[in-house]
């Protein structure tokens, strides 16, 4: 599913170049559930943004589902973000002026799906995350955990093969965190969706079957797939 070789990212700032990632070699198979850990500033988010085709590496290669991402044109990258990948952010990143239903359906709009199809699928996914009572609410009328479930429903709406979640429970209390993690586990187990998830917390990482630890832009520990 994912294969990076020598992946590096430099941020050029006024004070010179900062090496946020220094040669990361990671390979993740379809259906894996990976937790990415490491101290603050170790490059986890930088890595996730590269995996999500939101940013471009300074060096190295990234193959996603067998294709070299560096060779994709902007519209192809958009299509990959739209259909292949579902992104879940720490800050939810819902559009505040759209209803819950419209937020969930939005990726389908960019995929070119018709109105009726979008509604039906978004409804079904909101039911899946137990939010079918909230379809016409606005995002700011929901609790953090509910908003994150809306974001997960949105990430799922185009049936992605890969879900990337950057500290999805970072803004949630531990009980809600576990609800969200149970949902992720189900998705991984029942639908075979590949999951890569950044977290600081051990109990969250314990849901995953493999842990990759970052330090100063390098992978310092990779448990591999646990038996």
């Amino acid at each position: 599913m994912i294969k990076t070789t020598g992946l590096a990212k430099d941020y050029v700032t006024g004070a010179g170049a900062f090496h946020a990632l220094r040669g990361v070699d990671v390979s993740i198979d379809p259906g894996e559930f990976v937790a990415v850990m490491g101290p603050s500033g170790s490059g986890k988010s930088t890595f996730m943004n590269l995996l999500g085709c939101l940013d471009k590496p300074s060096a190295g290669h990234y193959h996603l589902a067998g294709r070299a991402v560096s060779e994709m044109r902007p519209d192809e990258l958009a299509a990959v973000r739209n259909k292949l990948i579902g992104f879940v952010f720490q800050g939810f990143n819902l559009l505040p002026r759209l209803s819950v239903l419209d937020n969930v359906a939005l990726p389908m709009l960019y995929a070119g799906a018709g109105h009726a199809k979008r509604r039906a699928r978004a409804q079904a996914l909101l039911k899946r995350v137990s939010l079918d009572g909230k379809t016409h609410q606005m995002p700011n009328q929901l609790s953090g955990g509910q908003q994150q479930r809306v974001a997960i429903a949105r990430a799922l709406v185009n049936q992605p093969q890969l879900i990337l979640a950057d500290e999805p429970t970072g803004n949630l209390d531990s009980e809600t965190s576990h609800e969200v993690m149970n949902l992720f586990t189900e998705l991984n187990r029942d639908e075979g969706i590949t999951l890569v998830l950044v977290t600081h917390e051990m109990d969250i990482a314990a849901f995953a079957r493999r842990r990759i630890r970052f330090l100063d832009g390098k992978v310092v520990e990779d448990t591999g797939v646990a038996a």
């Binding site: 999500g52 939101l54 902007p74 519209d75 958009a78 299509a79 973000r81 739209n82 259909k83 992104f87 990143n93 819902l94 559009l95 939005l106 990726p107 960019y110 995929a111 949105r154 185009n158």
Partner: peptide, 16 residues
């Protein structure tokens, strides 16, 4: 700008 970023992250093309 942030809204545009979110839209791009979930698959909006430049033309969209």
């Amino acid at each position: 700008t942030r809204e545009i970023g979110i839209r791009m992250a979930i698959g909006a093309r430049r033309s969209d």
